[in-house]
Lab assay of single mutants.
Amino acid sequence: HITLTNLITEETTHVVMKTDAEFVCERTLKYFLGIAGGKWVVSYFWVTQSIKERKMLNEHDFEVRGDVVNGRNHQGPKRARESQDRKIFRGLEICCYGPFTNMPTDQLEWMVQLCGASVVKELSSFTLGTGVHPIVVVQPDAWTEDNGFHAIGQMCEAPVVTREWVLDSVALYQCQELDTYLIPQIPHSHY
């Protein structure tokens, strides 16, 4: 019994991606959610070859190996599938703050939850000092008015990073160091 759908849910078992011959794909929301959820992320060749051979072929032979941004053979989907007991964002409290493009905020929040993070909706909701690490995620190029994202640091004691930190961490299924993704914050004294 196979159901085809464009939506990823808890029940989804396989995410089928358009890939090149070496099982490398573009980074899409579907790709990120498939990895975050520990699903099989496979090339569409799995479907076409299975139909051709009239049997369901082994997914291992068709698993996506990499993507056009993070590298052609990083094995993120395999790492995620085999590490669902070791979520990459466990112990983190993440607030997805401000506008985002090409990806609804609720989907970004679901993605970080699938990776083990707790989501907070407001900067004031962080449970500071409880052994949980707060992180604010923003997408600077989605902000149309002044660079308000440079002043988020005044509203909460949390590192502010770009959305790329989430996307790179999920694609590779390895929590990336914050340093290269940090957004400089204007210190309090400048006000």
Rank of each mutant, 00 (worst) to 15 (best):
residue 35 I to Q: 02
residue 176 Q to L: 14
residue 23 F to P: 02
residue 188 H to V: 15
residue 59 E to R: 00
residue 161 V to A: 08
residue 123 L to P: 12
residue 81 R to Y: 00
residue 43 S to L: 04
residue 123 L to R: 14
residue 3 T to S: 11
residue 183 I to L: 13
residue 187 P to L: 10
residue 150 H to P: 11
residue 68 V to R: 04
residue 27 R to A: 01
residue 79 R to P: 01
residue 83 S to V: 08
residue 42 V to T: 13
residue 120 V to S: 11
residue 141 D to V: 05
residue 6 N to C: 05
residue 136 V to P: 02
residue 150 H to Y: 01
residue 95 C to R: 04
residue 117 A to T: 03
residue 11 E to T: 14
residue 146 D to Q: 10
residue 174 Q to K: 14
residue 125 S to A: 15
residue 72 R to Q: 07
residue 32 F to T: 04
residue 148 G to C: 07
residue 20 D to T: 07
residue 59 E to L: 05
residue 62 F to M: 04
residue 75 Q to D: 05
residue 168 D to E: 02
residue 37 G to N: 04
residue 109 E to Q: 08
residue 1 H to F: 08
residue 11 E to Q: 11
residue 127 T to M: 11
residue 102 N to Y: 05
residue 57 L to I: 02
residue 67 D to V: 00
residue 105 T to R: 09
residue 71 G to F: 02
residue 156 C to W: 07
residue 18 K to M: 10
residue 117 A to I: 02
residue 71 G to T: 02
residue 124 S to P: 06
residue 187 P to S: 09
residue 47 V to A: 12
residue 86 R to Q: 10
residue 84 Q to N: 05
residue 43 S to G: 06
residue 57 L to Y: 06
residue 57 L to T: 15
residue 41 V to W: 01
residue 13 T to G: 01
residue 189 S to A: 06
residue 86 R to I: 07
residue 65 R to D: 05
residue 138 V to T: 11
residue 141 D to G: 03
residue 96 C to Y: 05
residue 81 R to A: 01
residue 98 G to Q: 03
residue 93 E to W: 11
residue 171 A to E: 05
residue 158 A to P: 05
residue 176 Q to P: 04
residue 123 L to C: 14
residue 59 E to I: 13
residue 154 Q to T: 12
residue 103 M to V: 11
residue 178 L to V: 08
residue 11 E to R: 06
residue 73 N to P: 03
residue 168 D to K: 06
residue 12 T to H: 07
residue 121 K to H: 15
residue 149 F to V: 10
residue 2 I to G: 12
residue 6 N to P: 08
residue 88 I to K: 03
residue 100 F to S: 08
residue 114 L to F: 07
residue 88 I to Y: 01
residue 137 V to E: 03
residue 191 Y to R: 09
residue 143 W to E: 06
residue 15 V to T: 02
residue 144 T to P: 02
residue 4 L to A: 07
residue 37 G to I: 06
residue 55 K to N: 09
residue 93 E to S: 15
residue 139 Q to S: 13
residue 187 P to V: 13
residue 187 P to H: 15
residue 69 V to D: 08
residue 55 K to S: 12
residue 146 D to A: 15
residue 134 P to S: 15
residue 45 F to L: 15
residue 96 C to V: 06
residue 61 D to R: 07
residue 180 T to M: 06
residue 186 I to A: 12
residue 123 L to I: 10
residue 190 H to F: 04
residue 2 I to D: 02
residue 191 Y to M: 13
residue 130 T to A: 12
residue 170 V to G: 03
residue 39 K to N: 04
residue 82 E to A: 12
residue 191 Y to Q: 09
residue 121 K to L: 14
residue 2 I to K: 11
residue 2 I to L: 12
residue 123 L to M: 08
residue 68 V to L: 14
residue 66 G to Q: 01
residue 56 M to K: 05
residue 118 S to Y: 03
residue 104 P to T: 13
residue 21 A to V: 04
residue 178 L to S: 06
residue 136 V to M: 04
residue 174 Q to R: 11
residue 108 L to P: 00
residue 3 T to F: 11
residue 113 Q to L: 08
residue 95 C to T: 09
residue 120 V to E: 00
residue 14 H to Q: 01
residue 112 V to L: 10
residue 98 G to M: 02
residue 147 N to K: 09
residue 155 M to T: 05
residue 149 F to S: 14
residue 117 A to S: 10
residue 183 I to M: 11
residue 75 Q to V: 10
residue 39 K to D: 01
residue 15 V to G: 00
residue 169 S to K: 01
residue 29 L to I: 09
residue 82 E to M: 10
residue 92 L to P: 01
residue 58 N to A: 07
residue 156 C to A: 15
residue 95 C to V: 09
residue 66 G to S: 01
residue 142 A to P: 07
residue 39 K to S: 09
residue 75 Q to S: 09
residue 55 K to R: 03
residue 174 Q to S: 05
residue 147 N to R: 07
residue 117 A to E: 00
residue 73 N to S: 06
residue 90 R to C: 15
residue 171 A to V: 09
residue 136 V to F: 11
residue 85 D to Q: 09
residue 176 Q to K: 10
residue 164 E to P: 13
residue 164 E to V: 08
residue 19 T to H: 00
residue 36 A to Y: 01
residue 76 G to A: 04
residue 26 E to Y: 07
residue 64 V to T: 03
residue 173 Y to W: 08
residue 82 E to P: 01
residue 110 W to S: 10
residue 117 A to F: 02
residue 185 Q to L: 09
residue 121 K to M: 11
residue 2 I to V: 07
residue 82 E to V: 04
residue 111 M to T: 04
residue 70 N to R: 12
residue 3 T to I: 11
residue 189 S to L: 10
residue 91 G to P: 05
residue 1 H to R: 09
residue 39 K to V: 08
residue 79 R to L: 11
